[in-house]
Design a protein around this nucleic acid. Structure first.
Lengths: 211, 211
DNA sequence: CCGGAAGCGATACGATCGTATTGGAATAAG
DNA sequence: CTTATTCCAATACGATCGTATCGCTTCCGG
């Protein structure tokens, strides 16, 4: 058998190039040729890695989704183990992608989401990532709920519903920052206020530091 | 002087065609030729109405933004005058575009938002619409706050911040429905729960019917 | 009533797209 | 060493894009 190449690492490299270009020129604005140039491979190499452009985009969205999810998980794991509420704050903050260094990732994500709303096969990886994040948030909220000494009379708090709200809020805030309707600071303030409200409903005292 | 045509009405017709196509094939997926065919005019006519494609898209996004904003305003105006809280619920519900008949509008909006995150000149009309909606929500929340008999000790509720949160949540929920992460019913439930929480913090009794 | 400006549809043009194909370089098996 | 197979870069191809241009029609002003 002749030559052997590591397709997996090349695919990842190409996915990175896709992300860079999607950040600059939008989702449909990335061409196979530009991707090849960015990844420093030939057009033919890209074609051998992916049978079609759609397959390439699908891999790329999965790649970036996995990266974001993993970073959130890492942040949660690095949080103080005894305080699920603090971890929750960190997770939400990480999901919102508000910091300047993640602006590119946010643009990429938005680009793929918009594409998926119309292209259908792209919804798969996207849903996977959203489901993973929602599950993580749900778990953290449930954990924080249990940690509060005892249930009072009121507050029928549904962890899954709260997780969905938090995820949607973070996503919406990110979008509004991207189009310039909000500043990153304004969005962060809104997110923070929502978390404070959530903690109050949990009956948990507000953790000392939440960003 | 020779012929005279009503450019304004033609522009609107073309904008409608742009929306239909953006709903079907995404933002960048609309071509001048397809637009012309949909609007039942010649390609040349489209070119005479808009100097470039970007100008056409800009007009279209302004068109749909204005339409959405107007519908929300109408809904608010049709709400019982004495209950700002009820009007707020209606407004939020209308903004979220969750009903099936507005799915197309939601897709169009998302398409333009994604485009704007990368194209810059499109952010103008988009920001205008977002600002209008946020102002409306802010006013309704402030109104509802004042209507509550007296301020207790706590609750330093910031109407603008709450409006931003509500707008971002509605936007995020719409997006999540579009990509299939949530069902319309699930999103509605989350939105409803958020509104209930908001009303409680307002000190207002929950209005009788909220959707 | 008639000359010319404005609108019209059609077509042309250059660029760029995704994909297919091709001929040669590289390599492991025989 | 030979040979068959895999990889490679480059180029070709057909389609489609946005835009420019061109005769022809239409209709108001003088």
């Amino acid at each position: 058998m002749p030559k052997q190449v590591d397709y997996e690492s090349r695919r990842r490299r190409i996915a990175e190039a896709v992300c860079l270009l999607a950040d600059e020129h939008g989702p449909e604005g990335v061409s196979m040729r530009d991707v090849a140039a960015r990844a420093q491979v030939s057009l033919g190499a890209v074609q051998r890695c992916f049978r079609s452009k759609e397959e390439m985009l699908l891999f790329a969205v999965d790649h970036v989704g996995g990266r974001i999810t993993q970073r959130v998980r890492n942040r949660v794991a690095a949080s103080p183990a005894q305080s699920a509420a603090t971890a929750l704050g960190h997770a939400a903050d990480e999901i919102a992608l508000l910091r300047e260094e993640h602006r590119a990732e946010a643009r990429i994500w938005l680009a793929f989401v918009a594409q998926a709303a119309v292209s259908e096969p792209l919804t798969g990886p996207l849903r996977t990532s959203y489901a993973a994040l929602q599950d993580l948030l749900t778990r953290l909220i449930a954990e924080a709920t249990e940690s509060v000494p005892a249930d009072e009379d009121a507050a029928p708090l549904d962890p899954q519903r709260e997780a969905r709200a938090l995820l949607a809020l973070a996503d919406g805030l990110t979008t509004h920052v991207l189009v310039g309707h909000l500043t990153a600071e304004g969005a962060e303030e809104v997110l923070h206020a929502h978390l404070v409200g959530l903690w109050e409903r949990l009956g948990t005292a507000r953790p000392g530091k939440a960003v």
